[in-house]
């Protein structure tokens, strides 16, 4: 591995876009972000407005994707639900990555007791089954978007910290780092300008998969009634609401189910594309 400049970035972008799956994934994610941003403008109805007498109605001219048990418009709920998924996906990765970056850099770059301390903490946290701990935390703290973020980030950072530590340890032994050190650059500068930029590729790839994992985890918690509080239209909660009517109104569960599938697949495809384009090996 060598230091990469702008030219190499252009090559990565070109390789990424040639990856058909990744390009499709990017398109879906771009659309998702746009929908999440513009949900209030795009939604034909208030996502929480009820019309009890038309509960479980199928698709119609006014309700394109049909209505749930309480007569709420599924399309509007789906669009608003994208905001929750995107917030949790990006939010969890942002928080986990920040903590992971600090812990991983400190461990990998300075080593010694700092490394020992962080890695033992990671070992302890990794001993917990992730989703069970998240369930326990949200059960104690109560259901809300913030608590879901806390629950998912509390263990989420561990993976990043270990990955970053390994990357930093590898890169810091390379010749260009040695020469930077020999030329008298202070350690913090070496870390920020020389080590990190060359350690980022696998971290970017991992983060993309991390977004997909967080979205699935949020849907799982909401499905169990531990995610965001009702009546917020979380996709997971919508599946749970529709689950009871699978045999009479399958669309109620299928619509959010397909949305989760498409979103997670898009992020995973992007991750695959990035991995190939950046030539990251597992």
């Amino acid at each position: 591995m060598s230091e990469r400049g702008p030219a190499s970035r252009g090559r990565i972008a070109a390789r990424f876009l040639r990856h058909r799956g990744a390009a499709a994934g990017l398109a879906v994610v771009a659309a998702l972000l746009l929908v999440a941003l513009l949900a209030p403008l795009l939604s034909p109805f208030d996502p929480n407005a009820q019309d009890l007498d038309s509960g479980l109605s199928g698709a119609s001219a006014s309700h394109w994707l049909g209505q749930d048990k309480l007569g709420r418009d599924l399309l509007s709920r789906l669009l608003h639900g994208s905001r929750i998924s995107v917030s949790v996906g990006l939010g969890t990765v942002a928080v986990s990555l920040s903590i992971g970056l600090l812990a991983g850099c400190a461990s990998g770059f300075y080593g010694g007791r700092t490394d020992h301390l962080f890695m033992r903490l990671c070992d302890v946290l990794m001993a917990f089954p992730g989703i069970l701990l998240a369930i326990a935390i949200t059960a104690v703290l109560g259901p809300s978007l913030r608590n879901v973020l806390i629950a998912l980030s509390l263990l989420g950072w561990v993976g990043y910290a270990r990955l970053i530590r390994a990357q930093v340890m590898k890169v810091k032994e390379m010749e260009f780092v040695e020469s930077a050190r020999a030329s008298g650059s202070p350690p913090a500068r070496i870390l920020v300008s020389h080590v990190l930029p060359n350690a980022l590729s696998p971290i970017i790839v991992e983060s993309t998969f991390g977004i997909a994992r967080a979205i699935v985890a949020e849907a799982g918690l909401s499905f169990l009634g531990l995610g965001v509080a009702p009546p917020a239209p979380s996709w997971g909660a919508m599946i749970n609401e529709g689950r009871h009517f699978l045999f009479v109104a399958p669309h109620v569960a299928a619509v959010p189910g397909l949305a989760i599938m498409a979103t997670v697949m898009a992020f995973n495809l992007i991750g695959d594309g990035l991995r190939d384009a950046m030539d990251v090996r597992d």
Binding site: N48, A49, Q50, L52, K69, L70, G225, P230, P231, N240, E241, R243, H244
Partner: peptide, 13 residues
């Protein structure tokens, strides 16, 4: 319970 949550959403509205 999903039924209870459903009723809660109706009362809320």
């Amino acid at each position: 319970n999903e039924l209870r949550r459903r009723i809660a959403a109706v009362l809320q509205e």
